[in-house]
């Protein structure tokens, strides 16, 4: 076996680290635009889906989004948008987030201009159980929210509750959707997320509207 001097080892490692650093920086910089485009397209496609535009993806989604949506307030993920929905009516997009069973869950809610009626909704999640909790992303679950109201006649916030059949029988139909069977904790997470996030965002929107 050959022996190596300390100097050799030192130079060897330095060169190696340098090569690695240059390579990684190049790869990262080279792929960054694509990664960011992916993220942007995903967000746009999600919001569009909530607003009733289906089957738009990638750069198409970004283009359509820029056409129909306009920033209303906030920044980063907290941005709210004015959007012209697929049915021609105007709506407001708000972002909600919370915790599911395994990790974060979030979603975009499209509200009608009265800031009460839900026009559409999409959910997304980090790591819910596939086939159970992960089903919150599916049309079957999210379409149940359409047309539901957030406030009762007296103007009190009740949110749209996600409840099992038979649970909370005092909550009228207009304020509830059925939980996903077998995914109790994820459903509870969605329920809590809407309950906690919405009042705050809507209050903010109302002050913006007054200005």
């Amino acid at each position: 076996m050959k022996t190596f001097s300390n100097k050799y080892i030192f130079v060897y490692v330095s060169v190696l680290v340098l090569v690695v650093a240059v390579l990684l920086t190049a790869v990262s910089l080279g792929l960054k635009p694509r990664q960011e485009a992916n993220r942007k397209a995903e967000k746009a496609a999600q919001i569009l889906r909530a607003a009733g535009y289906h089957d738009v993806d990638g750069s198409e989604a970004v283009a359509l989004f820029e056409q129909v949506a306009q920033r209303a307030s906030g920044d980063g993920e907290r941005e709210t948008y004015h959007i012209r929905c697929a049915d021609g009516e105007n709506g407001l997009v708000v972002y909600v987030n919370g915790k599911g069973l395994w990790g974060a869950i979030w979603g975009y809610v499209v509200l009608a201009e009265d800031l009460n009626t839900v026009k559409g909704i999409v959910f997304s999640h980090k790591s819910e159980t596939p086939g159970l909790g992960a089903n919150i992303t599916e049309e079957k679950f999210s379409s149940a929210f359409v047309g539901k109201k957030l406030y009762d006649e007296k103007g009190n916030f009740v949110s749209v509750r996600v409840l099992k059949a038979g649970q909370g029988s005092d909550v009228p139909d207009v304020h509830r959707v059925d939980a996903i069977s077998g995914a109790t904790l994820t459903s509870k997470g969605v329920d809590a997320m809407l309950m906690e996030s919405l009042p705050e965002v809507i209050a903010k929107l109302k002050t913006v509207n007054k200005k």
């Binding site: 076996m1 190596f4 050799y8 190696l16 990684l24 792929l31 990664q35 992916n38």
Partner: peptide
């Protein structure tokens, strides 16, 4: 050099993994 071979191996492997990860994020988001 045999004395630092584990570190060299780790360096090579983690570099490759990062490259793969970056490519996945860009092309199979």
């Amino acid at each position: 050099p045999p004395r630092i071979r584990i570190i060299v191996q780790l360096l090579v492997v983690s570099t490759l993994v990062i490259v793969v990860d970056q490519f996945l994020q860009a092309y199979l988001y």
